Amino acid sequence: MVLHTAAVGFAAILVISGHVASAQADPVEIPLELANKLRPAVTGEGALDTPFFNAAEEEITIASLKGRGVVLNFWATWCAPCVREMPALDRLAAALKDQGVDVIAVSEDRKALKKVPPFFEANAIANLDVYYDLKGQLSRKVGVEGLPTTVLIDAEGQLVGRVLGVLEWDAPQTVNYLAQTLTTQKP
């Protein structure tokens, strides 16, 4: 088990390091906690064009987010690990907002528009907007196997990787890594 975890972590480092090395001269080191949980992002056909919705019930697609990096989190109010992770995602959104990276937390709740706003208010979630996945269409196309799952997308619209489970998203090393890895790098 330890060998398997180390091998998967090493493979994730190679995948992400290659992406970072091609984008900038000095590659940024991936934080260990992130490296241990990062997996390749493999999606089903049409995932980039599958809509999810904002609080105004407007359609959004992953493809339409090109130009900014995205930390795309799938969660639900009934999911205890998701609830525990939400404050860190909220702080991450505040930290990355002016650095070219958006944090989008997509609710998998049924009747999300009735459940998420009161949840955000009760938990002082101020930096995340309300998004939801109608009937789990996007999560199925992205290959979400459990909640929480977070997909990392760079500013070019390329899926960089996915994180299964909870992560300390607002750790300084993670914030720095995401800011440098997911944004468009200038030569």
Rank of each mutant, 00 (worst) to 15 (best):
L138R: 00
L48K: 13
E45K: 01
I60Q: 12
K97G: 02
Y131P: 04
A88E: 14
T43L: 04
D109A: 05
F120D: 11
D49R: 07
A126H: 07
P81V: 08
N123P: 13
W75M: 03
W78M: 11
G67E: 06
L65T: 14
T150C: 12
P148R: 14
A88Y: 04
T61H: 01
E145Q: 09
V70D: 01
V130S: 09
L96P: 03
L89G: 03
Q99N: 05
G44F: 00
E108N: 15
E145S: 14
I104P: 03
G146T: 08
V142K: 11
W169F: 11
L128G: 08
A122W: 08
L96F: 03
V163H: 04
V71P: 03
G161L: 06
V106R: 03
Q137S: 10
A80V: 15
L159P: 15
E121G: 07
I60H: 15
S107I: 00
Q137H: 06
L72H: 13
L167D: 06
L72M: 06
Q137F: 00
A56L: 05
N73C: 03
L48D: 12
V116Y: 03
E145I: 08
T50L: 00
K37I: 13
I125C: 12
V106K: 00
V42M: 12
E121Y: 05
P117T: 10
A55W: 02
T50V: 01
V144F: 00
D102K: 13
R162I: 07
N54T: 05
R84I: 14
E59L: 09
V160M: 07
